[in-house]
Amino acid sequence: MGAPVILLQNVWFSHNGEPVLENVNLAIRKGDFTALIGPNGGGKTTLIRLMVGLLKPDKGKIRVLGKPPRSVATRLGYVPQNIGANQRFPVSVLDVVLMGRLTTFRRWPRHSRKDKDAARKALEAMEMWEFRNRHVGELSGGQQQRVMIARALATEPEILFLDEPTASVDTKHQSEFYEILRELNRVVTIVIVCHELMMINAYVKSVACVNRCVHYHGDAEVTQEMIDMYQCPVELVAHGLPHRVLKEHNGDERASS
């Protein structure tokens, strides 16, 4: 089994005095495919940003690959939630993906053959190589999302963090997208924020429910405890796949009716 690749111990985080995460304990093993679910504002994005080192916890310990996140940041792939906030930004698909090859103070404006090969491989994996010279802002939301994922893949990460990667991918391409992730998961540990319960059931190996506290489950199922304590179904209902979950787990409603 080995040591966990991601370890959070008694982690607290607040924003402007408002508690966002309280006493989070979480251990994710190598090769895992973990889904973070929970209501909006529950702290999923914060949790991911803590794990990649973009935020610092108020209290507690975070170890990623055995070290503080900031010191291993270049070994992590990160796909942020908001893609291309600046749609007019003049940058080509290939240039965005090459950003994944940046290192501290590279000092020379040329990319090496190795960098170009890695970028090509990542774009081909996301089936976006033919778009390499296109302006990113001209692409559809789903295509832009793939470019962001290709950029994360170009870093050749050991752990891949994805924050709602399918938000702008149409349903038809979602299962295709999860197939790619499954393929990647053979070598890469994946942590993903997502809402599609059907996808979670089919692809994910473990689930963590985030709503200020974190309830982690080693299996890919949403338990009664999660529903009661973390109000996960609220979110799941909102995303249109309520029936199975509610039938299996929502005892309260049955009791009250």
């Binding site: 990649v52 080192g53 973009l54 940041a73 270049t74 992590l76 990160y78 942020p80 600046n86 930004f89 940058v91 240039d95 965005v96 090459l98 950003m99 994944g100 940046l102 290192t103 501290t104 103070f105 590279r106 000092r107 020379w108 404006p109 950029r151 870093t155």
Partner: peptide
Amino acid sequence: TVLFYHDFLAMSYDEDFARLRGVP
């Protein structure tokens, strides 16, 4: 600008990602 072109580009396009890649 020539020396740090890629750093400026990455920082301007996506600050968080640049930070993760070790761009100061």
